[in-house]
Nucleic acid binder design. Structure first.
Length: 499
RNA sequence: GGUCCUGUGGCCGAGUGGCUAGGCAGAGCUCUGCAAAAGCUUCUACAGCGGUUCGAAUCCGCUCGGGACCUCCA
C-alpha cells in the first residue's frame, strides 16, 4: 500500500507520486514573525513535521522549505506608531529587524521544544526581495499586472479569463466563483487604485511612516502579501514541486494568489498536492488573534494563563495534536490537555519498559493474542498511508500498552507471544513513536540525580527489609512532594519517574 | 448573502454500510506492608425527523445547532 494524501485541489485522497522519483519538494507556509506563536501555530508545523518524517521514512529525499515572513506591516505591541517617523535616536526607535529577530528566535525555540526537525531551507522574505521584484516584473511583462502610484496589482480578471480556458480558473483551489466574489469583497484601503476588487497587491508603495522599505522599479515600497511564497518556492523547489502545505485559513486568498502568480510566471500549477491542516478551536471557535482567544506557546509551557490550571509540556501538546486527524478541528481545553498528559505518560512509560522484557519463545502460548499484537503493529503503516492517520496509529499503540505492561509485570506469561511477534511489535512502536511521530521524553537531572536517587532507593530498600516502614514511607513521601514517584515493582525492584 | 465543513458517550477524539476505535475521567476486582503503578472487568454514543437498504452513527433529504473562508490569519 502506498501513501495517499488528501489533495485540497481535487478534494479527494490521491496516491502520492513525486515528480522526480525518490525526491520530494515540500513547501510549508511559515510564521509571520511579528509576534509570539500560539497554540494554533503549533498544529501545521507539527503536522508537516510528521509528513516530512514519514516521507523520509518512506525513503524519499525531501527538500523541506518553510519560509519566515519577516516583511510586512510590523509594529511591536506597546510601541507607538510615531516611533517610526519620529526624530528619536536610532537606538530608541523600533528597529524592524530587531523585532523580527526576537520572534524568529522564539519560534525556533518553540519548534525545538516540539522536537520538530528543522526544514532544509528556511528562507526569509526580506532575503528574497530581488527574486520577488523579478517575478513581479515578469508578471507585468506578461500583462497580468499593472502599476498605479508606485504600487503593482495583479489583474485577477484577466488571469481568470485567460487561464479558465487552460483549466485553471482563479478560485480553483478554494472552490470560489470569481463572479460572485466581486460583490462580496470588503472595502479596503487603497481599493480605488485597483481596477477590480478581486485584484491583489504584488508590490505596495510605502507610505512615509512605513519602516520596512526597499527600492524597486516602481519606487520605494514593500512586497505584497503573497509573492514571497511564490518567489521562494520557485527558487528552491522549481517551477512545479510536489507538496504545498499550510493552514486551512491560508487556502484563500493566500494560496489562490500564489497559484495565479506562479502560474503566470512558470506556466504550471506550482504544486501538485495541496495539503491543509484544520484549525485548533477554543469552545468551538477558531483560535486566532482577531478572536482574542489565543494561548501563546510560552503561556502553555508555563501554565500562566487564566484558562490553564497547570503548565503543559511541549510533548503533551504534540501528543494532543497527533491524537486527532490533521484535517479535523481540534478543540482545546485544559481538561483535554490533562487527558493527553496522562495518556502520553502511560504510553511513554510502557515504551520505556520494552528493554526490560526478554521474549524467547518460538511459539506463542496465546496464539490469538500473538496474531492480534502482530496485526496491531503492522497495520500502523497502513494508517499512516491513509492520509497520515496518526490518531489511529496511537490508538493501536494504546492497545499494545496492556500487553507490554502485562509482560513486564508478569500478568502475562512471557511466552504468551512469540519472539518474532515481539520483535515486530517493538520495532514498530519504536519506529513510530520516535522516528515518525517524533515523540520523546527527556528526564531532567542527569547522572548525579540518578546516583542520588539510586542511593535513596537503596536506603529505603534496606529499611523495608527491616520492616521500618516509617522510614521507607517518609522517603517515598518526600520524593513525591518533589515530583518524583517511586514505584515498587513486582520483582522487588523500585523504579521512579519524574513529572 | 456566497462557498464549504461539521454535530459521536462526563471530556477529547477515530471511524467504516453489518464486527469493542482509542485516550482521559468514573465504578468494581486482583496484586501489594501500605501506596503508586500495572492488569482484569465495567457504565454512559453516534443532534432530531423522514427515506434508501436485509441492515446505517456511516448513503440521501429536511429541520435544528456549531464552525471556517469570503479581510491579516496556522
Amino acid at each position: 500500500m502506498s501513501l495517499k494524501v488528501y489533495n485540497s485541489l481535487t478534494r479527494q485522497k490521491e496516491v502520492f507520486q513525486s515528480i522526480t522519483p525518490g525526491h520530494v519538494g515540500l513547501y510549508v507556509c511559515g510564521p509571520t514573525v511579528s509576534g509570539e506563536s500560539h497554540l494554533g501555530h503549533a498544529r501545521p508545523y507539527i503536522t508537516f513535521d510528521v509528513l516530512y518524517r514519514y516521507l523520509n521514512y518512506l525513503g524519499y529525499q525531501v527538500r523541506y522549505v518553510r519560509n519566515i515572513t519577516d516583511a510586512g506591516h510590523f509594529e511591536e505591541e506597546g510601541r507607538a506608531a510615531e516611533d517610526k517617523v519620529s526624530s528619536k535616536a536610532i537606538l530608541e526607535k523600533l528597529e524592524p529587524m530587531e523585532l523580527v529577530q526576537k520572534y524568529t528566535n522564539r519560534f525556533h525555540w518553540a519548534m525545538l521544544q516540539f522536537n520538530n526537525i528543522e526544514p532544509s531551507i528556511e528562507p526569509t522574505a526580506t532575503g528574497h526581495i530581488v527574486e520577488q521584484i523579478n517575478m513581479i516584473e515578469q508578471i507585468i511583462a506578461d500583462g497580468y499586472a499593472y502599476v498605479v502610484n508606485g504600487s503593482v496589482y495583479f489583474d485577477v480578471n484577466k488571469y481568470h479569463k485567460d487561464f479558465s480556458a487552460k483549466g485553471q480558473p482563479y478560485g480553483i483551489l478554494s472552490g470560489r466563483n470569481l463572479e460572485e466574489q466581486l460583490d462580496t469583497t470588503r472595502d479596503l484601503e487603497g481599493q480605488d487604485e485597483k481596477r477590480n476588487k478581486a485584484d491583489f497587491a504584488l508590490w505596495k508603495q510605502a507610505p512615509p511612516q512605513h519602516i520596512m522599505r526597499w527600492k524597486s522599479p516602481w519606487g520605494e515600497g514593500f512586497p505584497g502579501w503573497h509573492i514571497e511564497c511564490s518567489a521562494m518556492a520557485t527558487k528552491y523547489l522549481g517551477k512545479q514541486f510536489d507538496i504545498h502545505g499550510g493552514g486551512m485559513d491560508l487556502q484563500f486568498p493566500h494560496h489562490e494568489c500564489e497559484i495565479a502568480q506562479s502560474t503566470v510566471c512558470n506556466h504550471a500549477m506550482p504544486a501538485r498536492y495541496w495539503m491543509h491542516n484544520n484549525m485548533i478551536t477554543i469552545n468551538g471557535k477558531k483560535m486566532g488573534k482577531s478572536y482574542n482567544n489565543v494561548i501563546k506557546l510560552s503561556e502553555l509551557f508555563s501554565g500562566n494563563h487564566p484558562l490553564l490550571t497547570q503548565p503543559f509540556h511541549p510533548m503533551t501538546i504534540r501528543f494532543f495534536i497527533l491524537q486527532s486527524h490533521y484535517r479535523s478541528t481540534l478543540d482545546f481545553s485544559n481538561e483535554a490537555l490533562q487527558g493527553s498528559e496522562r495518556a502520553f505518560k502511560r504510553l511513554w512509560e510502557a515504551y520505556q519498559q520494552i528493554p526490560q522484557i526478554q521474549i524467547v519463545a518460538e511459539t506463542a502460548t496465546q496464539p490469538e493474542l500473538d496474531v492480534q499484537c502482530r496485526q496491531l503493529a503492522e497495520v500502523m503503516d497502513e494508517y499512516m498511508n491513509d492520509d497520515l492517520n496518526t490518531a489511529k496509529v496511537l490508538a493501536n499503540m494504546f492497545e499494545l500498552v496492556p500487553v507490554i505492561n502485562g509482560l513486564r509485570n508478569k500478568q502475562l506469561p512471557l511466552d504468551a507471544i512469540s519472539a518474532q511477534t515481539w520483535s515486530i511489535v517493538t520495532s514498530q512502536i519504536k519506529k513510530f513513536i520516535e522516528d515518525i511521530l517524533g515523540l520523546k521524553w527527556e528526564q531532567e537531572g542527569g547522572d548525579k540525580i540518578e546516583g542520588v536517587l539510586q542511593l535513596l532507593v537503596q536506603i529505603r530498600q534496606s529499611a523495608k527489609q527491616k520492616k521500618d516502614f516509617q522510614t521507607s514511607d517518609t522517603i517515598r513521601k518526600e520524593l513525591a512532594a518533589l515530583g518524583i514517584l517511586l514505584k515498587d515493582e513486582k520483582d522487588g525492584t523500585t523504579s521512579w519517574s519524574m513529572d
